[in-house]
Amino acid sequence: MSSAALGKRAGRPAWQEPAKPVTKAAKGVALAFICLLVLVPFLVVISTSLASPDEVVANGGWVLWPEHPTLDAYRDIFRGGQVTKAIGVSIGVTLVGTLASLVATTLLAYALSRPQLVGGRKILLGILFTFLFPPGMIPAYLVVKQLGLLDNYAALIAPVMINVFNLVIVRGFIQGLPEELFEAARLDGAGEWQVLWRVVLPLSKAVLAVIGLFYAVSYWNAWFHASIYMSDSKFPIQQVLRMYVIQGAQLADPSAADAAAVSAPQTVRMAVVIIAVIPIILVYPLVQRFFVRGVLTGAIKS
C-alpha cells in the first residue's frame, strides 16, 4: 500500500519500469492527434459563436477563427432571461435528480445484491424485463398525467429515476465485495443499515461517483420528457437549446409552415451550444479524482 501511495505521488508506481522513449513518443502523437480531432470541431463551434453574423453568413455558416470577435451572441441570449432561467431549472433538476437517483439506485442495488433476500432474483428479472420493453410515449404520458405530475419539475425526475444499466453495475459491484467483510461486520453486531453505511458505502465511493456522473449527465442532457410533460416556462436548458438550434431546421413543408418566422442567427445558435456545455463539464473533474489507482485497495486493507 505504501508503495502504491508513494508511486502515485511520483506519477509512476515503483514496480513500473520507465517507458521507452519510442513508446512515449508514439503515445504522445496518438493523444495529440485524438485531441486535435476533438478540439478542432469544437473550436469551430466556439469561433462561430464569437464571430459577427455577417462574417458567418459570408463563410456559409461556420467560422474557423473570427476576425472581429464579439460577445454579442452571448449578450443576446442572456438578455431575455429565459436561458438563465432554463439553466437554473437544469441545475436544480440535475442536482435533485442525481441525488434521488443515487439513493434509490444504491438502496435497490444493495437489497438485490444480498443473497438472502426472498424473491430477489425474480425482482431483478422483472426489472430487466422493463429494460427490454421500455414504455411507449403515450402510456408513459398517461401515467405521468394521472399522477398529477404534468408541468411539475418532478416529471423530469420521477419517470427516469432509476436506470437499469446503472442499477446492474452498482449491484454487481456490491455483490463483488468480499463476503468476509459482511460477515466481519455482522460479527461486530452490525445490522443491515450499519453494513450499508459502514461497509458498503465507503467502499463504493468510486462506483457511486461514476454512476452519479452518468445520472447527472443524463439529467442535464435530457429534453424529450420536458418537451412532452412541461410547458415552455419550465423548460430546461437542453429544450431551450433545441428551440434555438433546430427550430425551422426540419419544417414539415416550407410552403405550409410559416416561412416568415425568423430563426436565430447561427452565432446565437452556437453560443447556446457552448452555454449548455459549460456547467456540466465542470462536474467531470470532481469525479475524476476517484479514478486514481488503488482507491479500493487501501480502503479494504484498513
Partner: peptide, 19 residues
C-alpha cells in the same frame, strides 16, 4: 431499501408497459 426502487418500476414501467 427495496421499496422506493420497486415502487418506481411498478408505477413508471410496469404500469406503462401495459400500454
Amino acid at each position: 431499501c427495496l421499496l422506493p426502487g420497486l415502487a418506481y418500476f411498478l408505477i413508471f414501467h410496469l404500469g406503462a408497459a401495459f400500454g
